[in-house]
Nucleic acid binder design. Sequence first.
DNA 1: CCGAACTTGTTGAATGCTCAACTAAATCGC
DNA 2: GCGATTTAGTTGAGCATTCAACAAGTTCGG
Lengths: 153, 153
Amino acid sequence: MLGSMTRWLDPDEQRTWRAYLAASRALMDTLDRELQRDAGMPHAYYEILVRLSEAPDRRLRMGDLADATGSSRSRLSHAAARLEASGWIRREDCPTDRRGQVAALTDAGHATLAAAAPGHVEGVRRHLFDALSPAQVDQLRRISETLSDHLTG
Amino acid sequence: MLGSMTRWLDPDEQRTWRAYLAASRALMDTLDRELQRDAGMPHAYYEILVRLSEAPDRRLRMGDLADATGSSRSRLSHAAARLEASGWIRREDCPTDRRGQVAALTDAGHATLAAAAPGHVEGVRRHLFDALSPAQVDQLRRISETLSDHLTG
DNA sequence: CCGAACTTGTTGAATGCTCAACTAAATCGC
DNA sequence: GCGATTTAGTTGAGCATTCAACAAGTTCGG
């Protein structure tokens, strides 16, 4: 970067970036607070339970679960310890790889998720989809998919 | 909500929501990591310094600073304690309200910000604006502004 | 085979955030 | 004016996340 001029954001970009920051922060803070209040867990933990509930036999390798939730392994490991202490998941040894662990959603975890889901979906609808036109929803999907590909791919 | 049927997300909405979650998480994680590595501070702290640097006399009331950064007062208070310990801001008594505190950017804070800014802007450009078409940038701005208004207004 | 390199998952320390409780000062209502 | 309410900001406890270091198992090169 030495010797290269910084290409600052022009006013439109500045405005876009700040609007994006404000909106995404407000959205996630709101959903997080609602979920914490209604289900006693942060959004990140809710997502872990969702991914497990959709997996075959409600089980996933820790690494796959980390990838699915966009989490670091360390973060998932700490989260799993807490979810296990709550009785919502169980960790089992992987039969095919002796280093591996498999996270399994318990019945209690499934029940907790089932109880939390309607309220959370309602929140996502109210705070996100209800505010946007169908065209904007489509735009947001394309933008998000582009960004994801760009960042991870 | 009792007795009301949950309006689940349809497949398009589901896809949009998950893409949005993945993208915004990846984007903020990336920028946060870059800023932590290059400037030794999380993105939230960077934003605090930016807002102070733009304020008249590089000073803002704590409450105004909290509003500007979309932060809770508690969060800002903790952050300010840390930024003050780093020597990047100073807290002064407010002359017009004896309950009040004014956060002031120090010269060291301004220098740190000036050193961090080019790299961070470069990151925002690379990870966000370079990936999107001008039309998509415009769409993202409108979507974000709509969501902000909807959530806070 | 066997050692080097890599992968899987966990741990502990340090940091940041949330929530509730609190102090102190300003303002409102009468 | 004066008590009740509201507002400004801080604090501490508890929880979540990051990073670096680690143990144990697997795979790869020869």
